[in-house]
Amino acid sequence: MLNDFINAYSLMNLRYLLAGLGITIFVSIISIIGSYIIGAILGIIRYVKIKYLSAVVGFVIDLIRNLPLLLIIFFIYFGLPSIGLKPSSIWATIIAMIVFESAMLAEIVRSGIQAVDWGQMEGARANGLTYTQALWHIILPQAMKKMIPAIVSQFISLIKDTSLATIIVLPDVMHNTQIVYGQNTNYIIPMFLMLAIMYFVVCYALSLVSRYLEKRMA
């Protein structure tokens, strides 16, 4: 048993896992940036109630939010080629993540803006600011502060959920772990332990950052 652990944690295996972790982090960072931008835009569109546009955006967001991420991954990976795009499994995962997570974030942004006291908007308008100015300078900064915990925990979900993309052969840390223990099944237990530790370290570090931000902004 102890021998299995020592052999499983050979430099070669660990390097292979770390390479997978690198892919996980790469995919996560690009997806986080993309979904943060798109999610914020969609959330604001939903909030400001532009005729038709907001309703359509809202409906599409609801559709996406209510489907399993795994299904979105399949749609992107198997579906995009029929409109002429052929993403690799890495880019397919990134696109699927951005589609799914920006819908989730849009909802957080919308309810975050709504949670800001309506009186503030009226006050700002009374002081001569336009609607857009009030939204941009008064409402959004406060809303963003309130949203931080929800947004960060959504990002943590995003990192964890990249593991689902092993099903379309994304060479991430989950996939590489499976390759290692698939070749020598004595390594199953040590490999799972290492996998859990790697995810935990990354996600927990992010949640500590969130706590720090919350404290600083409060």
């Binding site: 099903i167 499976q178 390759i179 223990y181 698939g182 070749q183 099944t185 199953i188």
Partner: peptide
């Protein structure tokens, strides 16, 4: 199962 690594692991388990 979704691939042979998974299937073999399942057999071993």
């Amino acid at each position: 199962l979704s691939d042979y690594a998974q299937a073999l692991t399942a057999l071993k388990s």
